[in-house]
Nucleic acid binder design. Structure first.
Length: 697
DNA sequence: GGCTATGCTTTTTTT
DNA sequence: AAGCATAGCC
């Protein structure tokens, strides 16, 4: 493609569509018009990041780049959707040729295209975090590790984190210090076997296998390098090691790599994201140009003052500060309430005040919480006052039992060896497969190193199975095979409907939920899946059960199409801080500003306070016009109420020193120790908790 | 095998 | 407070 003349900031580089650069400030313009070579855009909150990325893509195309040579990866489906939309608004039809997607979706596609090269099965299932947990439990069961030894979710977290750091099970076994690492290592190995024999990849594998593909297979690598001449990465501060490798493998040669992000908004370290990637970009890509976007168009000055005040307490970061393009405004409100109920009442009362004055609509408000358990009192209060609200990042649609059931059926139809799914629905509706038989089958499967499905198939050798359980398995199998679910050809939605009919899921829902309200709600979940299927058929060029399933699995976030944004349009938004990143609201309530909650005790114990501070920073910078930070004097936890300590971030936000004698969350025991003595201790000066005692069964 | 009652634990965040 | 696992009963 034509090389592009470097020109001083501000000068338009080409004839094509100069209007693209209009209305950009000098830094934004520089970012957009730097079209070749490595580029790091440090985009503070509210500085027009998305605009810069989308304009840059449009600009590339305007200058003659082939849209299909552009790869833009994002972190969430929502961001991908938004990017696609906005690029389309700028360049029209040709936007469709640009590859836009999340890392995971992109990798899934690459792996399907190259399954053979890697020796992966043609059809593999993708398992999400909760399937992953089931598989870890299976692994532990097979190894006869009791769940009280180490919590399965803790094992799963360690395995996943290990993968994200590109560690291996063997490294854990060899270099691990202590019995926990040994345990994780061996569970990990067994877990890997389970996934292999059930032809399953977890989320982390999608990335890792892609790295392996691109690293070890030169022709494939060259193909992708040749194809994608421009690589853009959004939210680069959230990049983990495998993602970084993928970027380097595809873009490291031509070096047309543009990464955009904000180290101050790195909040996924717990999941393997590595801030050092953005801190060291200029070292990884020598000669990289760095552009800082610091003019904030979102918030008033008092809000930005609070944000800057908080974040400057973090030591290791790219130096920068937000400047307000909006200027003055209301001071930040700091409020102390009696307890979480009072806090909810206060927040809703404030909202109603503004609503009465008609200076705001419900959609202008957001309540931001550190954890989901904090939602409850707010939901109650909002409902009591008749205010419409949406919960984002709560229990996902895909976590609902009926949805998981249906998805399990589908996965099983596509991949008979998918053990997690089989175990989930083998007896749904009840078909005589009880625990005893299941235990036998699983023991046999373990012993033979085969999947549970294969063990069922070889029931004769297994022994000790009740006849009805074998019959039950076969009944399910035959329904899956004969219902026409996997037949291509006829339309997907009616195949699904027919399948649900034949398998008797409707009656099962009716049976399980005698209460008509619950019944309706559950069945609505099933209908929603059919809805999704319809959408898939409509949108996808080549609709298929496989494709639909993949979409369902990778679509674990809340992004659920137009319907939800309509609802959000005029409803109060209740969400976690993590879910809030990238959004903005005129009026923000940052609630539960207490030591232990924000900063969260457990997070601090694991990774220190910096990431919690960034979380606070993210919360503060969501606010456009008003920001209220509140905390409760006492708060119920596990049912019991206890005194709280105001968050250090409250002091920082006001530029104050911590008061004399202030005691924050104390250093607690290493997070992966069982919290045997979780009793709140008085006078938090003691350093180490007594060695956790192990529960005996 | 299936269902209910009881007792115990507790995941922070999500692709 | 609530969900989940286990035990125990039909």
């Amino acid at each position: 493609m034509a090389s592009i003349r470097r020109s001083p900031a501000g000068a338009s580089t080409a004839v094509a569509n100069p209007a693209l650069l209009d209305g950009l400030n000098p830094s934004q313009r520089e970012a957009v018009s730097t079209t070749e070579g490595p580029l790091l855009v440090l985009a503070g909150a509210g500085t027009g990041k998305t605009r810069v990325i989308t304009t840059r893509i449009a600009h590339l195309i305007a200058l003659g780049a082939d849209p299909s040579a552009i790869l833009a990866v994002t972190f969430t489906n929502k961001a991908a959707g938004e990017m696609r939309e906005r690029v389309a608004a700028l360049v029209g039809e040709r936007a469709r040729e640009v590859t836009v997607g999340t890392f995971h979706a992109f990798c899934a596609r690459v792996l399907r295209e190259n399954a053979a090269v890697l020796g992966l099965p043609r059809r593999f299932t993708i398992c999400d975090a909760s399937d992953q947990l089931s598989a870890v439990k299976s692994a532990m069961r097979e190894l006869r590790v009791h769940e009280t030894t180490m919590h399965p979710s803790a094992v799963q977290a360690r395995i996943s984190l290990g993968k994200n750091r590109m560690d291996t099970a063997e490294a854990f076994l060899d270099n691990g210090t202590g019995s926990r690492d040994q345990l994780v290592g061996s569970v990990w190995q067994r877990y890997r076997e389970i996934l292999a024999r059930t032809r399953t990849l977890d989320f982390d594998d999608l990335l890792l296998e892609t790295v392996r593909l691109l690293r070890d297979h030169e022709p494939v690598r060259d193909r992708y390098r040749a194809r994608y001449r421009h690589v853009l990465v959004d939210e680069y501060q959230d990049t983990n090691h495998p993602q970084y490798e993928i970027v380097r493998l595809i873009g490291g040669e031509h070096r047309n790599v543009c990464v955009v992000g904000d180290d101050d908004q790195s909040i996924y370290g717990w999941r393997g994201a590595d801030v050092r990637k953005i801190l060291g970009f200029h070292r990884d890509f020598t000669g990289a140009k760095v552009v800082r976007l610091q003019t904030n168009y979102r918030s008033t000055r008092p809000i930005l003052d609070a944000a800057n005040n908080v974040i400057r307490h973090n030591a290791s970061r790219h130096d920068k500060a937000l400047e307000s393009a909006r200027g003055g405004g209301e001071p930040v409100h700091f409020v102390r309430l009696k307890d979480e109920t009072a806090e909810a009442a206060f927040v809703v009362e404030q909202m109603r005040k503004l609503l009465r004055l008609e200076t705001a609509r419900p959609g202008d408000f957001a309540i931001l919480c550190r954890t989901q358990v904090q939602f409850r009192p707010f939901e109650g209060e909002l409902r009591a006052n008749g205010l419409p609200y949406v919960v984002v990042g709560g229990m996902s649609f895909f976590d609902r039992k009926e949805v998981r059931d249906v998805v399990a059926f589908l996965k099983l139809a596509v991949n008979p060896r998918d053990e997690t799914s089989l175990l989930r629905v083998i007896n749904t509706p009840p078909r005589g497969v009880g625990k005893a038989s299941l235990d036998r089958v699983l023991a046999f499967a373990t012993e033979q190193g085969i999947s549970a499905a294969e063990a069922f198939e070889r029931a004769g050798e297994c022994g000790g199975l009740s006849p009805q359980s074998v019959a039950g398995y076969q009944a399910l199998r035959s329904i899956l095979e004969t219902s026409g679910l996997v037949d291509a050809g006829s339309d997907l939605v009616s195949r699904l409907e027919r399948f649900l009919e034949v398998v008797g899921y409707r009656e099962e829902v009716l049976r399980l939920y005698p209460d008509p309200v619950a019944r309706e709600a559950r069945w609505a979940g099933v209908l929603e899946i059919l809805n999704f299927a319809e959408n898939h058929v409509r949108r996808s060029p080549r609709p298929s059960l496989d494709g639909f399933l993949e979409e369902l699995t990778l679509q674990t976030d809340d992004g659920r199409g137009e319907e939800r944004s309509d609802r959000r349009a005029d409803a109060v938004t209740l969400m976690t801080l993590h879910a809030a990143k990238g959004l903005e609201f005129p009026h923000v309530f940052l609630v539960g500003m207490e030591e232990g909650l924000l900063p969260h005790a457990r997070a601090v114990a694991e990774n220190g306070v910096d990431e919690e501070r960034r979380l606070a920073y993210v919360g503060i910078t969501r606010a456009m016009a008003t920001l209220t930070m509140s905390f409760a004097f006492e708060r119920a936890k596990y049912g019991r109420s206890a005194r709280t300590v105001p968050s250090r971030f409250l002091y920082e936000a006001q530029g104050e020193a911590l008061p004399a004698g202030w005691v924050g969350i104390e250093q607690s025991a290493p997070a992966d120790e069982p919290a045997a003595d979780a009793k709140p201790r008085r006078g938090g000066r003691k350093k180490a908790a007594p060695r956790a005692r192990r529960k005996r069964a």
